[in-house]
Amino acid sequence: MEKKVTVLPGDGIGPEVVASAVKVLQAIGKKFHHTFHIAYATIGGAAIDQHGDPLPQETIELCEESDAVLLGAVGGPKWDHNTAELRPEKGLLRIRKHFDLFSNLRPVQAIPSLIKSSPLKDDLVKEVDLLIVRELTGGLYFGEPRKRTNEEAIDSLVYSRLEIERIVENAFELARVRRGKLTSVDKANVLETSRLWRQIVDEKKAQYPDVEVEHSLVDSTAMKLITNPGAYDVLVTENMFGDILSDEASVITGSLGVLPSASIRSDNFGLYEPVHGSAPEIAGKGIANPAATILSVAMMLRYSFGLKEEATEIEHAVNAAFNDGFFTSDLATSGNQALTTDEWTEKVLNKIDPSFVSDSIITTYI
């Protein structure tokens, strides 16, 4: 297989963790005889500094020529006082909208060697294996009209039937290949958009008799994610609810550094990125945890390229490195040596292919 991947390192620790993830992608390519052509472009604060735009046209064009996009992280205090259109985060919103990346996938899975890092009790965490499917391009964050005066502010929560149908169908398909349970999260006791959402879920479930469906209000879901997270398989919800619930769920495993994400569209083109932020306070120190970005590459292989065996190989390598007692400083305890970003990446690479040397990738710079 031959694929082109655009890499957007971004800001803060983004370039460091992306470098680790690209090495892992190289190793998988070598082991399974695939060729991954890598092109680099800018987004976020780095793009503002270089091009005066958080999502330059050059970046858009390069992504359009690619089969998938790998992103590091954006943002930092350097740009906190910029206008809204020149904030690094604006680049993320725009790239999601431009490429119609309507489905955001956020897996949360317990890693045995990291359970002690969770703020929850061990018996609540050890069975966790859930997937949050968040609608990403509609709802309150994109609705119009939107305005603000000194006396009043308006944000509009708007969803069309098409927007709801496609994310719900996506969630049903994912539940079907997992454990066959779908939880639809809404606020149907208050919101008209949620009532339409619930209606469409009920219409669609007839097409998926092998999937168990339940409706859950967002507030009770937020409580149950903490009191009984192992009860969930796939959760599907609208944009703002998904934003909040996925961040809540991210603490279950004990570290943002191990959580990947995918934002995909109907033809499986996707943008893959770690859940964590740019962490500018540790940028350049060589201590950032690259696991989430490496696992984002695994999601890319699985969801955009259909390479399930290769994706599983990466996931097993990451888990094996942790289970062997290798950690970066954010997860190391007094009994474990804290490895640098590069040192920990080498542990993962050795699990994949001990003979790998990262000198064979085809790279383009813009």
Rank of each mutant, 00 (worst) to 15 (best):
L225C: 01
V22K: 11
L71N: 04
L225I: 09
S358A: 15
T183Y: 01
W197N: 03
A206D: 13
P274N: 00
Q109K: 13
D267C: 05
M240C: 07
L93P: 04
P274C: 05
I352P: 07
S103Y: 09
T253L: 04
N104S: 01
T341K: 14
E309S: 00
V17N: 05
S266P: 11
P56L: 02
I200R: 04
T345V: 02
D123C: 10
L307H: 02
A291N: 07
E343T: 13
E151T: 13
H51A: 13
D233G: 05
A73I: 05
L71F: 06
S20D: 12
V158K: 14
G254N: 09
F36I: 01
G138D: 08
R161Q: 07
L301G: 01
T312W: 12
Q337I: 15
T183H: 01
G257E: 07
H81D: 15
T137N: 06
S118Q: 05
V201S: 02
I294R: 08
S160I: 01
H81T: 13
L182G: 06
N82C: 04
P290V: 04
I314L: 08
V158M: 14
F99D: 03
Y272T: 03
N336R: 10
T364R: 14
K97M: 01
S278F: 01
R96L: 06
A27Q: 08
K23R: 15
G270T: 07
L295C: 10
M1P: 12
L331D: 02
T364D: 15
E151R: 15
V297N: 05
K30H: 10
I352G: 05
T237E: 12
Y159D: 06
R134C: 02
D80W: 07
G76C: 07
K147E: 15
A21M: 12
T42W: 11
V158L: 13
D330I: 04
R134L: 08
A41I: 09
G230N: 01
D353Q: 12
E163C: 13
E212I: 08
L271G: 03
S334L: 14
I164Q: 11
Q207V: 13
A41H: 10
G325K: 03
S250G: 07
S66Y: 12
L136I: 05
I352Y: 01
G277W: 00
S263T: 06
V275N: 07
P260W: 05
E281G: 08
A46W: 09
V18N: 08
G75R: 04
R148N: 12
E192Y: 05
L62P: 02
A110D: 00
T137R: 03
N189D: 09
P290K: 02
I13M: 09
K147L: 15
E165F: 13
P54I: 08
E203P: 06
G45C: 09
A262Y: 09
N170I: 14
T42G: 13
L256C: 03
S103P: 08
E248M: 12
H316I: 10
K97W: 00
V251K: 04
P107D: 11
G45M: 09
D243W: 13
K351H: 09
V158Y: 14
V24R: 01
V5T: 08
S184K: 05
E310S: 00
I43S: 05
W344P: 00
V213N: 10
E163H: 13
N239R: 04
R179K: 11
D324C: 06
T363W: 14
K121M: 09
G14L: 08
I48T: 10
I366G: 15
V7M: 14
L8Q: 10
L25G: 11
G230Q: 06
P15Y: 05
T183W: 00
